[in-house]
């Protein structure tokens, strides 16, 4: 692993916007080593022994929470999950007080998932322990962005010059925003596509190309990241029906043919099969969706390691 002077030790991981290429590379390189641990028979290493991590989830989540929990446990840390069905405000305790209570227990890192944009940043202003954003509203989901990048690198060995297309409810997607910032920093040509009410034209200021024709967008694509369509958006009048969405914007085998023959298909999950993605694509040869889950674990292990132990030489291949 070697010593590095761009240490992430004690650094909050709040967003990929503004993260440097070398910081991103450090995390991705570290994750590559971490991934070897996951396949071992005995997965536990003592790297983070004596460190405690709180998963503070204000929003329901299965995969991200489990992924962070296992990442901490595989590295030997103590991990506690706190899940609140409602926000702290609704419960009556302020987020500041919830966080200060946690801090008083001596934790080293707080992983936070919250439905409101900017919550992780707000938490980082309050807490001395490291804060890792596990998704704040529609703002960012940095570990998902990193695992998407990691997955592309695994199959394509590079992001530089690749055409990456993010399809679906881009407007409300924290995954899309983290993907855009991270992938652009590593040189990808990023496009977004979906029905106009689920896009923002102004996203062009982030350096992406905005399309309302999914066919036009995925023409010649190297990577297609299919976003989950939240059914409640239909109730808000942003698109007419799941049927029409699937017909006009769903990624199926026929549409996939417009992309490069070896184009990679990603999905952050959970999938609505038959809506934004057809089963034959989801389980097809070009799909890396299962691999994304494994890679997510590696990325979270890497981040926990780097922010908690970053500057120290620790033998991870113990």
């Amino acid at each position: 692993m070697g010593k590095s002077n761009l240490s992430l030790r004690n650094k909050d991981i709040l967003q990929l916007q503004g993260m440097s290429e070398s910081q991103l590379q450090l995390i991705l390189d570290t994750a590559r080593e971490m991934k070897t641990i996951i396949d071992r028979d005995i997965k536990k290493v003592p790297t983070l022994r004596g460190k405690s991590i709180i998963n503070l989830f204000f929003e329901p989540s299965t995969r991200t929470r489990t992924s962070f929990e296992l990442a901490g446990k595989y590295l030997g840390a103590d991990v506690v999950n706190i899940t609140t069905s409602a926000s702290s405000v609704v419960k009556g305790e302020s987020m500041r007080d919830t966080l200060l209570t946690i801090e008083a227990m001596g934790v080293d890192a707080v992983v936070i998932r919250h439905e409101a944009e900017g919550s992780a940043q707000f938490a980082s202003q309050i807490l001395k322990p490291v804060v890792i954003n596990a998704g704040d509203g529609a703002h960012e989901h940095p570990t998902q962005g990193l695992l998407d990048m990691f997955t592309v690198l695994q199959y394509k060995q590079r992001l530089e010059g690749l055409k990456v297309v993010i399809v679906g409810d881009v407007l409300h997607s924290r995954v899309a925003r983290s993907d855009i910032w991270g992938m652009k920093t590593l040189g990808a040509d990023v496009h977004v596509a979906g029905p106009a009410p689920l896009l923002a034209r102004e996203m062009e200021t982030m350096g992406v190309t905005v399309h309302t024709s999914v066919e036009e967008a995925i023409e010649g694509a190297d990577v297609i990241n299919v976003l989950r369509i939240q059914k409640e958006r239909q109730g808000k009048g942003l698109f007419p029906s799941g049927r029409e969405y699937a017909r006009l914007f769903g990624i199926n085998a026929k549409r996939l043919q417009l992309a490069k023959p070896d184009a990679l298909v990603l999905h952050p999950g959970p999938m609505n099969r038959g809506l934004e993605i057809s089963p034959e694509v989801a389980y097809g040869a070009q799909s890396a969706i299962q691999e994304q889950v494994k890679n997510g674990l590696a990325i979270r292990m890497a981040i926990l390691y780097l922010v908690l132990m970053g500057g120290e030489e620790v033998e991870v291949t113990a």
Partner: peptide
Amino acid sequence: HEGAVSAMLGIP
């Protein structure tokens, strides 16, 4: 305000 900054921050 709905515009480039809201698009970036994900705030409605």
